[in-house]
Simulated scan of single mutants.
Amino acid sequence: MSDFIVPPPGLVPDAPQPAEPERTVRVPDRVPEFRPATPVVPPVPSVPPSAAGVPHVRRPGPRTAWRLRSEGGDGFTVSGRVVVGRDPRAADAAAGARPVALDDPARSLSKTHALLEVVDDRLLATDLGSTNGVRIWPEGEDPIELESGRPTSVPEGAVLLLGDVALLVDRAPDATV
């Protein structure tokens, strides 16, 4: 016989089972159909030969615009500075940036999630301390997690993952702004 008193069944409720942590970041294994039908190849600028051995100095010219499109075809163009998120506030992140609100039914985007900007004809993405991060997924490679606050170049043809929102990155047609 035991020294312990055992209560009758049902008198003491069972201990609650620990809840499994909810994962809000859902990255697909791959995005196979998410490529442009025809690749956009930007023209290669010709550099005039230098005169009398003096090196050619590149003058500032028109910047390239970049197009970001969702799998559903919605998108926007970046030719300067753009702050993206559920309800972005450019004043909070980057003065003079254009705010672009993205549709995110899963609410995986932060209100002010990332800064996208064109610098020297390159598209740079900066995670603005978002909850679910920013990843760059170059075609044929593994996704790269961005360090918060550090601008990172996004290659043409890559998929930019902002939380659960995937955007295909390419140069905008006739992209001189």
Rank of each mutant, 00 (worst) to 15 (best):
T176P: 05
D120L: 10
P13R: 09
P45R: 13
P105Y: 06
A106Y: 08
L116A: 01
P32Y: 08
D29A: 15
F4L: 15
L68I: 07
L128V: 03
L162P: 01
P7T: 07
A106R: 12
R122W: 08
V134T: 10
W66H: 12
R86I: 01
E117M: 08
V57A: 15
V40Y: 14
V119E: 13
P143M: 03
L123A: 05
A101P: 00
G163T: 03
R69K: 11
R30E: 15
P49N: 08
D14V: 10
L168C: 10
D170Y: 05
S70L: 11
A37C: 09
G157S: 11
P143G: 06
T24E: 14
G96V: 06
A95H: 08
R23F: 11
V6P: 06
V134C: 08
P18A: 13
R107I: 04
L115C: 05
P151V: 02
V134Q: 03
A52W: 09
F34H: 12
V27A: 07
P39G: 15
G72S: 15
V165P: 03
S46H: 13
R135H: 11
L128R: 04
V118H: 04
E117N: 04
W137L: 01
L109V: 08
V169D: 06
V82G: 01
G157V: 06
D164P: 14
A101S: 09
L11P: 02
A97Y: 00
R67G: 07
S2M: 10
F4S: 14
A101T: 00
L109N: 03
A15T: 11
D127Q: 07
A51W: 13
R81K: 12
T131P: 03
A65I: 03
A37K: 10
V84P: 02
P13S: 08
G53A: 11
P105N: 09
L161T: 00
G73S: 10
F34V: 02
G149F: 04
E33W: 15
L102M: 07
V6Y: 12
A125M: 05
D127H: 10
S79T: 10
D103P: 06
